[in-house]
Computed example of a mutant assay.
Amino acid sequence: MATLRFFAGAAEAAGTDGAAVDANSIGDLRAELVRLYGAEFARVLGLCSLLVNGARASDDAVQLTATDSVDVLPPFAGG
């Protein structure tokens, strides 16, 4: 199971700051997260960047393994 960390609005929408999810790809992960956390989380997830082991994963075909760490990062404002 991939280990997830949710930040800021993603953590708020999920109601937690972390999870472990069984998914074979980023696309599978997105679908499972929407199933687990619902429509509001889906809206937030659509705005988020996903980092797999520190590298941005924008393609749903990116493969995941059980040892991967995925950060779910909503857009940040500031300067």
Rank of each mutant, 00 (worst) to 15 (best):
10 A>K: 13
22 D>S: 10
27 G>F: 03
34 V>P: 12
72 V>T: 12
6 F>C: 04
34 V>C: 07
26 I>T: 01
16 T>E: 06
23 A>C: 08
41 F>G: 02
29 L>T: 02
72 V>P: 15
14 A>W: 13
71 D>R: 13
14 A>K: 04
21 V>R: 05
47 L>R: 11
64 L>C: 07
77 A>E: 11
72 V>W: 13
19 A>P: 15
19 A>V: 13
56 R>P: 15
11 A>P: 10
31 A>T: 06
66 A>R: 12
4 L>A: 02
71 D>P: 10
69 S>K: 11
40 E>M: 01
47 L>Q: 09
16 T>F: 09
21 V>N: 05
46 G>E: 08
56 R>K: 08
67 T>D: 15
7 F>K: 07
73 L>W: 11
17 D>W: 07
75 P>N: 06
66 A>W: 00
6 F>P: 13
12 E>C: 00
42 A>D: 14
38 G>A: 10
45 L>W: 08
32 E>S: 12
2 A>M: 14
58 S>K: 06
54 G>S: 00
63 Q>A: 12
21 V>M: 04
27 G>W: 06
8 A>Y: 15
6 F>M: 10
19 A>Q: 13
71 D>F: 06
11 A>D: 10
13 A>M: 12
52 V>S: 01
41 F>V: 00
20 A>P: 01
8 A>Q: 09
29 L>F: 03
67 T>M: 09
57 A>M: 02
77 A>W: 08
71 D>I: 01
14 A>V: 10
35 R>L: 14
28 D>H: 05
28 D>L: 04
30 R>M: 02
39 A>D: 15
69 S>L: 15
46 G>W: 01
55 A>M: 11
48 C>F: 07
40 E>N: 03
70 V>L: 14
17 D>L: 00
31 A>Q: 08
74 P>I: 03
33 L>Q: 09
77 A>L: 08
22 D>G: 03
70 V>F: 13
70 V>P: 14
41 F>S: 04
77 A>Y: 06
62 V>F: 09
2 A>Q: 11
7 F>H: 12
23 A>G: 02
50 L>M: 09
36 L>G: 06
67 T>P: 02
10 A>Y: 14
75 P>H: 02
59 D>H: 07
8 A>M: 14
8 A>P: 14
38 G>L: 04
66 A>I: 00
